[in-house]
Nucleic acid binder design. Structure first.
Length: 277
DNA sequence: TGGTATGTTCCAAA
DNA sequence: TTTTGGAACATACC
């Protein structure tokens, strides 16, 4: 389920349920998902109140009582929340249980067990590896231009690198590059100012649109999103491009399925030329 | 059966 | 040193 828009949607849905509540009990059913370990997570969060629920990159962050640290949850590929009051029967793949002081219960479910449940005393330290928030004020066109100029990589793998820009995943990287009319293998330090501006607008635009539609539903794990109706390239290999009708192409780039329009996103200006000094 | 999957990390190779 | 490719993590689905 989880890229920035899906995590943001989850945070907004669970904020009224969790903010102000005290965590009464924590049970882990998959100890390897708890960091630094189950006992440390339990010690850190049980008895503490969730003062604020927010998002940083693809992390769901619960700020606990002042000075009591933070609970960070990363959903990775298949993690999601389930609210016990909405279920008659227990869902599959429950990996952790959070009981609240109002009698409610939150299940953390995760078929593939890639997700992480982290207790951190120091938030800055725990998130030091993360790059800029693409929807924040500080993510300007100039900032993006500087970032792109500092690397000699292909643009799509760079967009997926959470230590540079934090929040894009495989769906929205492809969608942003389509909007900006950039081939996914374009060298990021060879973009014109106009292309950088287009990419900046595309990244923010596609994330905002996806949040407006409550994210993308790929399977039943995350059923509420409507953004999949508005995807232009992701998962559309062979279907006509909405702009020019050319069949959408699929390729493998940096080990990820990559979708683009070969006509609208032609690779250009990407070769080192003998004219360069 | 084999290939693919919304993510991240580690290691080796170029 | 930087970038890229592959494998690994564990499970479901086609």
């Amino acid at each position: 389920m989880p890229e920035l828009p899906e995590v943001e949607t989850t945070v907004r849905a669970y904020r009224p349920r969790l903010e102000g509540r005290r965590i009464a009990r924590f049970v882990s059913r998959c100890s390897k998902q708890a960091e630094p370990n189950v006992a440390a997570v339990r010690r850190g969060i049980v008895g503490k109140r969730v003062v604020r629920l927010r998002r940083r990159a693809k992390y769901i962050v619960a700020d606990l009582d002042a000075g009591c640290g933070h609970l960070l949850i990363h959903l990775r590929m298949s993690g999601h929340f389930e609210w016990a009051a909405e279920h008659d029967r227990r869902p599959r793949h429950i990996r952790a249980i959070f009981d609240l002081d109002d009698g409610n219960r939150l299940w953390f479910c995760d078929a593939r067990k890639f997700g992480k449940i982290v207790y951190a005393r120091d938030f800055a330290e725990a998130t030091r590896h993360l790059g800029v928030e693409p929807l924040e004020r500080g993510f300007t066109t100039a900032r993006l231009r500087r970032i792109l100029g500092e690397h000699a990589r292909q643009i799509k793998p760079l967009l997926l690198d959470q230590s540079i820009i934090a929040g894009l995943g495989n769906i929205y990287a492809d969608e942003a590059l389509f909007r900006a009319r950039l081939h996914p293998a374009t060298r990021c330090d060879r973009l014109s100012n106009g292309q950088v501006k287009s990419l900046h607008d595309a990244i923010r635009g596609v994330l905002r649109t996806a949040i407006r539609y409550d994210g993308t539903t790929i399977d039943s794990v995350y059923p509420r999103g409507r953004m999949q109706r508005h995807l232009k390239v992701y998962g559309r290999a062979g279907l006509p491009c909405g702009r020019c009708g050319t069949p959408i192409a699929a390729m493998r780039l940096a080990q990820r399925g990559t979708h683009f329009c070969p006509k609208c996103q032609a690779l250009s200006g990407n070769r080192r030329t003998s004219l360069s000094p």
